[in-house]
Every structure is written in C-alpha cells, then in structure tokens.
Design a binder for these strands. Structure first.
Length: 290
DNA sequence: CGTCCAGGTCTAC
DNA sequence: GGTAGACCTGGACGC
C-alpha cells in the first residue's frame, strides 16, 4: 500500500478529532456499503480523481489520519484526495465551542473530547442525492439505491453529468428509485448545467437561513432532508426529526410521546449545536468505548 | 393475497 | 400556516 496523505486529527480550533467516534451513519458509511465500509481498523472508500476511481483505506495512527492506496498516485490526485478526506471528517470545522459547552453537561460530557464529527461525502451534491435516497423508504432500499449510484459511477459516486445523462430506465429499473428518480435527475441536471451550485453552500460566511432556504428549494428535500444536509455542512442547529430519531428519543427518555416542538425545546439549551447534541444523545450507544 | 409502512415530500385545499 | 392524500418500492405482517 502506498501512502497517499497524512492529516493531523485536529479540528479548525485545534480541538482533538476522535477517529473512532466520528459518526459514520449520516451520509456515508451506512449509505454506501460499496464505497465505504466501516471496519474495525478504519474506513475504506473509493474516490474519483483524474477520471479514475481509486480505493483509499483510512486509518488512525499516532493521532493522525493516514490514507493509503494500492498504487502510487500523481501529486495532484493525492492532494485532491486529501482535500476530500478533510471534508469527510470535517476537519475545517471548529467544534471547540461545542466541547466547552458540554464539558460539564451530564448527558454529553462523554463526547467533549473529539466526538461529534459527522462523516460527510466529498461533495455536497453527493450528500444531497443520498439524503433523498433515505426518505420514505427502508434502509434496504437506501442501500440498493446508493449501490446502484456507485455502480453507475464505475465504483465511486457518479458525477452530475453522468447522473443527469442516465436514462429514465436506469432510474426505474436499476436504481429503482421510484418517484425520487425525477428529483435526483432534476438536481443532477441543474448541477451539471451550472445553474445550481451546491458546493457553494459550504461557504461559512453564508447564513444558516439562506442555506436552509436553498436546500428546501430542491425537489425531494424537505425539513428532514434540509436538517440532515445542514448537519453535514457543519451547521448543527437543526434537529433531524424522522421516523428513526423520534422513537429512539422516546425510548431513551422513557417518555410515551413527545411533540417535535417539545424535543426541540429539550435541546434548545445547546444553541447552535442543538441538532448535533440531539444526534449524539441518540447515537451514544453506537460508540463502544467510553 | 391485501395492507401497512419505512430515517418524507409535494400538492391542494 | 396547517393538514389530508398521493406517491415508487419492497419487506413485514395478517388473513
């Protein structure tokens, strides 16, 4: 294996990043079994660089994230992959204010040293499309759709042009996306035409309200999808409320029922990190060590 | 077999 | 601004 890059596991505020406690459910791991499998030793995912698909293995070593490939890459491609990995682990995000906030917080203090990073996709486009593939269907369907997307892309997530050019029959018969197909194709078409720039939503100068509005304008993206994608953009205020998080919240709290507004109020004290606090609260049992 | 529903959204009132 | 009904798909049920 050839070393591709080595990144310090530190956030933008110098805070530690726990490789093991990175939340690999949203957006990537569970949504792309062929592209990224969670393994005891690390993550594995295919990237497209220079028109080719390269599988990269990511591991933690001495507090650093090391990425390896089967063969040597061009300098330019290795840099592109390093950039993508930085985006996946959100290393440009500063979670130190959040850690300071939860340091003395009984339910979340355990997360104050490196947990809470939400594994994202290399592109916002990919996160948006995959999020649509989680809506109103079972996980098995989501897995099927993302597997088909990966196949279409030759082993990595397809570029917008490819997705925009895929025939309706592919959406119907291969991906079996149902009514979601038209939404996905419309978004891919606009991105390919450059009339829609989803990657621009990474700009930290933009207000949450604007990002949310742009996401809600997308076909197939509603309150759940917008909240989900915003988490992956490092905008952690919104709670992801869906048919998985609601019952999980009830189970953990022992409540019989709770309106969305009640759940939001329960996490309002975390301010701009309310959504992240909610997600950590719900996924604590995913993290094996303490 | 029919019905329900899963990590929702859109449209029409 | 709030709320029914429809919507692709397919796996889990009940009958």
């Amino acid at each position: 294996m050839i070393l591709v890059c080595e990144l310090p596991l530190r956030g933008a505020g110098g805070e530690p990043v726990s490789f093991a406690r990175t939340i690999h459910s949203h957006g990537c791991a569970r949504l792309a079994p062929a592209e990224l499998q969670d393994e005891p030793l690390g993550y594995r995912r295919s990237f497209r660089v220079g028109g080719r698909v390269v599988e990269i293995a990511m591991q933690e070593r001495d507090g650093r994230l090391v990425a390896h490939a089967a063969r040597k890459l061009r300098e330019r491609d290795a840099e592109a992959i390093a950039k993508s990995i930085g985006r996946m682990f959100r290393l440009d995000d500063d979670l130190s204010p959040f850690y300071a906030r939860i340091a003395e917080d009984e339910p979340l203090a355990w997360a104050a040293h490196g947990a809470g990073r939400m594994l994202a996709s290399p592109s916002v486009f990919e996160d948006v499309i995959k999020t649509i593939c989680t809506t109103n269907c079972a996980w098995s369907a989501t897995i099927r759709m993302t597997q088909a997307l990966s196949d279409l892309g030759g082993g990595a997530f397809p570029e917008s042009e490819v997705l925009a050019g895929a025939p309706d029959a592919w959406y119907r018969d291969a991906a079996r996306m149902g009514y979601r197909g038209a939404y996905v194709k419309a978004i891919a078409r606009d991105v390919a035409r450059r009339t829609l720039d989803l990657e621009a939503l990474r700009d930290r100068e933009i207000l949450d309200a604007y990002v949310e509005r742009k996401l809600l304008e997308l076909p197939g993206i509603g309150p759940y999808g917008a909240a989900h994608v915003m988490q992956l953009l490092g905008r952690h205020r919104r709670l992801v409320l869906d048919s998985w998080t609601r019952p999980k919240y009830l189970r953990l709290t022992g409540k019989k029922r709770a309106a969305d507004s009640t759940i939001r109020r329960a996490f309002a004290r975390y301010g701009e990190y309310a959504g992240l606090a909610f997600w950590l609260y719900l996924t604590r049992d995913w993290i094996e060590d303490e």
